[in-house]
Simulated scan of single mutants.
Amino acid sequence: MASPIQSLHSEYLSQNTISDLTTPIVLTIAGSDSGGGAGIQADIKAMSATGSFACSVITAITSQNTQGVSAIFPIPLEHVASQLDAVFTDLNIVAVKVGMLADSEIIKIVAEKIKQYQPKHLVIDPVMVATSGDLLLKESAISTLKAELIPLADIITPNLPEGAALTGKPVPESESDMQDMVEELRALGAKSVLLKGGHLEKDENSNDLLILPSSSSLISAKRYPTKNTHGTGCTLSSAIASFLAQGNELNQAVNLGKKYISEAIAHADELHVGQGHGPVNHFYAGHANVR
């Protein structure tokens, strides 16, 4: 019997002839998590597990583990820029996932390079707060993110506190509150928004709201009782970017990404990592995607 990831990968293969297949390359622009559960490390794991080749540009180094973030060191701007130039001038990058950017100047550099190199797909996970509650994006940088980078995105993937920070509305406490945020999220200028409802912990299911220019729909998955949810946002946005790079339309990429993160959470307790919020299980399906 095929594993869930084998099934996801088969869906991709069935939609593409062999002659159409090239190595789908995805770039993650994000911070490094020394604990390995989120950030660049989670992105690379998710992209690899879903069948793409991952490359990276590191924007910040965090001193971090499953219990929290103790220090953040932003990478000097010239080194962020040189990393971006290095990968874009050599690799055929089809999709880009943007995560932690730390400050306004780094956001501006990333936006400038995205405009310069124009990758086909841009997924932005507006990382502002870690699972532990630690602030990862300076408040002064939120307006820069909204003005410079979000309007370039195919999709942004805020959780409920991030949606509130971006719109100025209260943090949603129900699906109805999520619906009330739709117009403000559309006004940010991205082509689409995936508002993640994982923080509504009393709900039986984990429901995300996919907001398109003229419609919105709920994407639902079973909620699994586990404290090991470190890196879920990084993982989901990376999986969506990976599936976009493989030629899937946006709706399909989001649905495949949702299936992948749900299974990674379902298998999270098979790992025993750290004493706090442990990571999801990116490779729960083993080596199913090795061709």
Score class of each variant (00 low, 15 high):
T59N: 14
E78L: 03
P76I: 12
D85N: 15
V80G: 00
P76M: 12
S82T: 06
S56A: 13
G51H: 05
V80M: 03
V94H: 02
V87C: 02
V57N: 12
L77R: 06
L77D: 06
E78S: 05
S56N: 09
V94F: 03
V96M: 08
P76S: 13
I61L: 15
A86L: 03
F88Y: 07
E78R: 01
T59G: 13
V96G: 06
T50P: 06
P74I: 10
S70G: 01
T66H: 11
A95Y: 08
A95V: 07
S63E: 03
G99I: 09
V96E: 03
L101C: 12
I61T: 15
V57P: 11
I58N: 10
A54M: 10
T59H: 14
A60R: 00
A71H: 14
I61Y: 15
S82C: 00
Q67R: 11
P74R: 11
M100I: 13
L101M: 14
F53G: 09
S70M: 08
S70I: 07
L91A: 13
I75N: 14
L77S: 05
A86F: 05
N65E: 04
D103T: 10
I72P: 04
V98W: 15
I75G: 14
I75C: 14
F88R: 01
P74A: 09
L77N: 08
T66R: 13
N65S: 05
A81V: 05
A71K: 12
D103N: 15
A86E: 02
G99Y: 07
V87L: 04
F73G: 01
N92L: 09
